[in-house]
Structures are given as C-alpha cells and as structure tokens.
Design a protein around this nucleic acid. Structure first.
Length: 482
DNA sequence: CTAGGGTTAG
C-alpha cells in the first residue's frame, strides 16, 4: 500500500487512473484525501453542473460517497444540492439532508439556504420553513430564500408578511428581496404595496438597482393595472434584455392593447437586425436580443385578445421556423384560445386533435367556454365527454353544460346535468370597495376564505375594463354573492 | 470552489 501511495505522490498525472484501482484495494476509511483533495472532487462536481450534466454529477457524488467519503466536504454538498434541486427526484433531497446532518455540516448557513431552495422546488414548504427556523443567525439571503419559496408555491400573501417580519428583525431588504416581493405584489394585484416598494427603491441610498429589479417593477405595474406606469419605466430603461421586452409585451397583451404589443415585438426584432449589422462592422454586438418561448406567449396572447387569427398563426409558425423554438403545451393553449375567441369552434376542435400533446383539461375547458358563448351544443357534448374522462369532479363544467342546454331550451337535458353536481360550494358573500380611481381595490373582509380569489377576479376585471377605456370617478361598492 | 431574484395559455 505504501508503495502505491509513494508512487502516486511522485507521479500525480497517473493519479486519476490509479484512483479507481486504489479505491478498490483500499478500505474507504483509508485517508484518500491526500491524493484526491476536496477541491479537486468539488471542481469535478462543478464542471458537471456547469455543463448541465446533472445525473452525472449525482452519480459522481455517489461514487465519492462509496469509495472515498473523506474527500467530501461542505462545499461538495453545496454543489450536489444544486444538482438535486434541478433534478426533481423525490427522495434524493431528503437523503442529502440526512447526510448533511450525519457529516455534521448542519449549522452551515450556505447549506441551510440551499436546503430551503431544494425543499421549495419540491413544493415542500413545511420542511423548507423548518430548516429556516433552525438557522440561528439569519441573514438577508436565507430570508429571501424563504420568501421566494412562498412566492414560487403560490402563497404571495405569506411572502409579503415575511418581508414585513424580516424588517421587524432589523434586516433591511436588498435588491433581491425587493425583486421577489414585487413578484408577490404582481400575483395578488397589490398596487399600493408595489408602489410603496418603488418609492423605497428610489429613496434608499446605496441600493443597487439592476435589470431584474427593474423588470420586476415593470411586471408589477402591468399586472396591477397601471400599464402607463409600466410603459414609462420601460421607455426610461437604458439597458433592456429579453425579459424586459417580454414583460412589456405580455403587459400590453393583458390590457388588450394588441397593437402596442405587436409593435413592440417588431421593434425588438428591429433591434436585432440592427445589432447584427453592427456586429458585422465590429461593434455593439452585446445588445442582441433574441425572443424566447415566453415572448411568443405574449405575442400569441396579444393576437388572441385582439382577434387577429391570421397573424397569430404566422407567429406560431415563425416561432419554430425562424427561431428554432419548440412550442410548448401553453403555446398550443394560446392557439386554441385564439380560435375560440374568434368563434372558430371547429377549427379549434381540429387543432386540439392534431396537437402533439395529450390535450389537458384546461384546453378542453377553453373550448367548452367558447361553446357556451356560441350556444354550440354539438361541439360542447363532444368536449364534455373528454372532460368527464380527465376531470370528472369539476363542478364548473356541469354548470357550463347546463347553461348551454338552457340557452337552447333543452330543459330535460339541463336537469339531468344539474343533478350531476353533487357538492355545491358553500355560498359566500364579500364586499369590495373601489375607490375614485379604478386602479385600486380593497376587499373589506380581511379574513374571508375567498378573499384571494375575489382579488384575482377583480384584478382581471380591472384589466379588462381598462382595455375598453372605462373609468370610474365615483366611489363604487360592489357586493358579490353566490 | 460557497447560499437568495425578474417574463409563461385559461
């Protein structure tokens, strides 16, 4: 054994080849790290990660665990955790957590933050929060990790509460925390909170305002109904990237301003052509902006909301032909929506059947909704059959069907469908105040179980009303009940 | 060698 060790010491180049052999002869407890020091093993892990070879990274780690556990240090876990977060395997993460405890690396804050991220990616907020609670000296980074965990898992209210709690803990939010918080505001249409954050951003000295923060601001204003403020910010930004452009295009599309959205899209492509020209002349190559698949969602949404079918079709084709982007399920969903809104029910139906995906309930429901509007019983019956297979418990589909039958005077069928609705949701009542300007609203009942749903409905209502150029100047009180 | 962030159909 000593001979081999000496040999390897003298000729480091043969080291890698020898390691395998060596590992087999040796008991794992032998101090291998003299020959394969942690930084080397970690660099290998990092290399796998950077080249997107996630499975290989995990396998490499497993080999290390088996053959030379002593080469593993706390940094190794950081890389492996990252790999594990990207790969959504169910048990791997928990096993890693156990190993971290076994190795005694539990109190290292870098690892704890990574663990929060890992649990969040699996939708396991309970364990994410547990890890957070165990951190003795909490810093801004682990707070932000937890906040973004709640945003990513559709609990923006809790996220905003945590931002508040963090400040109570004498920690000032930085640009990353604020970016996440703005995203939470956008989710619930909390314009007031968003504006407060914007004011904070401008007031706070030494705060680094970067692209992500600006993009998040644009998105917040657009989603909260103030498209003018969003556009003002967009026009004022010197540095823009795909996300900036995409956010603005989606914003206009949501507000029904299809023309503006499509104008922006062609302007964006114009920049592309110009900078390619510049690149040929040898300067200004860095500002190249290539639309991605999300950009096309915005473009298709714009076409759909404006009812321009032909242009929508063209963009859908151009997506894969000119940009090499493979349309995802949601792009096909946009196209179905495009046909439905234009009243082309048969075209929508055929499109769904030709999709390379198994159509989901949402897609069929879009078509069913259009059938309700058009009073098309034939297509609706067909669609309902599909929905019964996919999601039989959804009461809304029965309601839609019953409405279609009612509109055609087919009362017998209506009663049959109505009977299928077994559990009705309990009726609720909420009061919503709309102030002098229609870009803010408050749900009066703070603890109402449907509060967040009502706010979402209102948010969309508000966006739609604005797109029709409606505005209110008196104070309004609406009462919803069901 | 080290942890957190922005855009996504209905």
């Amino acid at each position: 054994m000593t001979h081999i060790m000496r040999y390897m010491k003298r000729f480091p180049l043969v080291q890698t080849r020898m390691t395998k052999l060596f590992a087999i002869i040796c008991h794992p407890k032998v101090q291998l790290h003299t020959y394969l020091k942690p930084p080397k093993a970690n660099q290998a892990l990092k290399k796998y990660l950077n080249s997107n070879c996630i499975t290989e990274a995990l396998l490499f780690f497993r080999e290390l665990m088996r053959k030379s556990p002593s080469t593993i240090d706390s940094f190794s876990f950081l890389f492996v955790l990252k790999a594990c977060t990207q790969k959504h395997s169910a048990t791997g993460g928990k096993q890693l957590h156990t190993l971290i405890i076994k190795f005694g690396f539990e109190p290292i804050i870098y690892l704890q933050t990574s663990l929060i991220n890992m649990y969040s990616a699996r939708g396991n907020l309970f364990d994410a929060h547990c890890v957070f609670d165990e951190i003795t000296c909490k810093n801004i980074v682990c707070w932000t990790a937890l906040i973004s965990a709640y945003v990513d898992n559709q609990n923006p209210r809790k996220a905003l509460k945590l931002v508040w709690q963090m400040q109570m803990d004498n920690l000032e939010p930085d640009n990353v925390t604020l970016t996440v918080a703005l995203s939470a505001c956008a989710d619930i249409g909390a314009l007031e909170m968003g504006e407060w954050i914007h004011a904070y951003v401008r007031r706070k000295e030494g705060l680094h305002i970067d692209l992500s923060l600006n993009n998040s601001l644009i998105n917040m204003y657009a989603k909260c109904g103030d498209i003018v403020a969003a556009r003002r910010l967009f026009d004022g930004m010197k540095k823009k990237d795909v996300t900036t452009w995409t956010s603005m295009i989606v914003g206009h599309a949501l507000h029904g301003q299809a023309e503006e959205a499509l104008k922006l899209f062609s302007k964006m492509r114009g920049i592309n052509k110009n900078s390619r020209k510049h690149k040929r002349h040898g300067d200004c190559g860095s500002s190249l902006i290539v639309p991605n698949d999300v950009t096309f969602i915005g473009v298709l949404m714009a076409c759909s909301h404006a009812g321009i079918v032909e242009e929508g079709k063209q963009h859908f084709k151009s997506m894969s032909e000119d940009y090499g982007l493979k349309p995802r399920e949601s792009h096909f969903g946009c196209m179905v929506d495009l046909f439905c809104r234009a009243g082309l029910l048969n075209e929508a139906y055929e499109f769904i059947l030709e999709m390379p995906f198994k159509p989901n309930a949402v897609v069929w429901r879009t078509l069913l909704g259009a059938c309700t509007l058009k009073g098309n019983v034939e297509v609706a019956t067909e669609v309902q059959g599909r929905l019964l297979e996919l999601d039989p418990g959804y009461a809304g589909d029965y309601v839609a069907m019953s409405n279609i039958y009612a509109s055609k005077g087919m009362w017998d069928q209506k009663i049959v469908v109505r009977h299928h609705i077994k559990q009705r949701r309990s009726p609720g009542c909420s009061l919503i105040e709309v102030g002098t300007e229609i870009n803010e609203f408050v749900a009066a009942d703070e603890d109402h179980p449907l509060r967040s749903e009502i706010c979402t409905v209102l948010k969309h209502l508000l966006i739609n009303m604005k797109s029709f150029g409606w505005s209110f100047h008196r104070s309004y009180c609406w009462c919803f009940s069901r």
